[in-house]
Design a protein around this nucleic acid. Structure first.
Length: 309
DNA sequence: CGCATTTGACCAGCGC
DNA sequence: GCGCTGGTCAAATGCG
């Protein structure tokens, strides 16, 4: 995970079995500028083909309030073909179609599985059964548990918000469980998990080093319960709600392909909008539904100020 | 007193 | 194998 890994990643990306997102593709779904996106997506486990795209980190591009980035981290087999850390052996032996199929299957299974079932999986058990970390656990029998299968990441979904507040309200209650200094960034990254005992959803919050006014929030997993807080203006309009709710969907669609992301997410958002209109016909302003990507194809789907980038 | 946050330590994974 | 970084744990601390 060193700095020197990125150029290699970019140059190598031509060889991997993931769909390409470049200027020639009509399926561009770019979320961050070229360089930064490479870093972020790499962190999230994506391996987009970035070559040829000019950096879009135009400050004007950030004029809006929110940016949403899909960040699915396919697990195990899927990771073998989609992860940025790239298991070149696996990817080189799989045709692109096969790789997509694996990724889709894995992600779909994760994203659509029964939340309670997924939370009971061996890789992501509640509380102390997690595989990673836990230095103090070494003194207990958990040392044995740590030898278990690789931790399988839940689908992840990130978005950027122009906000002075680090921890955006999203209708759920979160407990901070860690904070780490981020390399090449003066701002720390905070780790939160849902306070619901049975819910394994986590999120991490950090500030965009290039623009401290922007908060990057990454959700991982799917809530197995309803939000505890319904804020003024309507649940559908809470900051972060969309990203939180659509994380599993987005990751699923993205594994199918960018075009599926557009169509699927657009459909979901429309349903969401219709539902919120029914729930709060008067108090909540209608979603202006502006959904923005580099190619603009998503258009008009997200509440004011929120962008899928 | 109970719950949330802070913080230092630890482990896993990756690149070199 | 070593060093770095991300992610997590849990004791200590803070707060209502």
């Amino acid at each position: 995970m060193g700095d020197s890994g990125e150029p290699d990643l970019l140059s190598r990306s031509n060889e991997v079995s993931c769909w390409a997102l470049g200027p020639d593709s009509e399926d561009n779904v770019y979320f961050f500028g070229r360089e930064r996106e490479s870093t972020l997506l790499k962190e999230f486990g994506w391996n987009y083909h970035l070559s040829g795209l000019e950096s879009s980190l135009d400050p004007a591009y950030f004029a809006g309030e929110h940016r949403i980035a899909a960040a699915d981290e396919p697990s195990d087999a899927a990771a073998a073909v989609c992860s940025s850390q790239l298991h070149e052996n696996a990817s080189s032996q799989l045709p692109a179609s096969a790789a997509h199929a694996v990724a889709s299957t894995e992600a779909a299974a994760t994203a659509t599985s029964n939340p309670s079932a997924s939370s009971s999986s061996s890789d992501d058990p509640p509380e102390k059964c997690t595989v990673a970390g836990g230095g103090k656990l070494a003194e207990t029998s958990t040392k044995v548990k740590r030898k278990g299968p690789k931790r399988i990441r839940q689908p992840r979904f990130a978005f950027m918000t122009k906000s002075e507040v680090d921890h955006l309200e999203d209708g759920y209650r979160w407990r901070k469980y860690g904070q780490k200094a981020v390399k090449n960034s003066p701002f720390p990254r905070s780790y939160y998990r849902c306070t619901n005992g049975k819910c394994t959803v986590k999120k991490r919050v950090e500030r965009f080093s290039d623009d401290p006014t922007i908060v990057i929030t990454t959700y991982e997993g799917q809530h197995c319960h309803h939000a505890v807080g319904f804020l003024r203006g309507g649940f559908a309009h809470c900051e972060g709600v969309l990203a939180s709710q659509f994380a599993p969907l987005a990751s699923q669609y993205l594994c199918l392909g960018p075009q599926f992301l557009r169509e699927g997410l657009a459909s979901a958002l429309q349903s969401h909008q219709a539902a919120s209109d029914v729930k709060e016909p008067h108090s909540a302003p209608r979603m202006s539904t502006q959904l923005i990507t580099d190619d603009g194809l998503l258009g008009d789907m997200v509440p004011p100020g929120m962008r899928i980038i």
